[in-house]
């Protein structure tokens, strides 16, 4: 078993303006909760990770700080989790159920290098 980082990317400019009702928020949460619960039920969830706000800053050499990162890339990181799986293929298979895919986003699957 290896650990894998799943990075959720979506169009950062899309979800900023619409105000959602609590019911809508609830309805949006359920697929995520069910998907993560399903991974945890297979004992393959290493860390539930974090969700990220759209707003952020990018720090560059020579004291250059810009708002971003979505200004430059259309695909901003919206969150991440860490799972364990037997192979990169299995980790990708698990990622197929990620709700971000229904929202026009994608999942980047990366193998985490062990510390030693």
């Amino acid at each position: 078993m290896k650990d894998f980082l799943l990075l959720f990317r979506r169009d950062g400019s899309a979800d900023t303006n619409t105000q959602m009702s609590p019911e809508q928020i609830q309805a949006m949460m359920k697929p995520w909760q069910d998907w993560m619960g399903g991974i945890a039920a297979q004992n393959k969830l290493v860390s539930p990770g974090n969700r990220l706000e759209a707003a952020g800053k990018v720090v560059k050499p020579n004291n250059v700080i810009t708002n971003g990162p979505y200004v430059e890339t259309k695909e901003a990181v919206g969150g991440y989790i860490i799972i364990k799986a037997a192979s990169l293929e299995e980790a990708a298979e698990i990622s197929k159920g990620c709700p971000i895919l229904q929202m026009g986003g994608n999942v980047e699957v990366r193998t985490i290098l062990p510390m030693n």
């Binding site: 359920k30 909760q33 993560m36 619960g37 945890a40 039920a41 004992n43 969830l45």
Partner: peptide
Amino acid sequence: WENILQLYNKLLVLEYSPVAALNRTYGL
């Protein structure tokens, strides 16, 4: 059942156990 399912989802994220995994699936 929606509440029970979400509670099991949270429980499993917190700590895995085979019994919780099976009960979660029944809730599902």
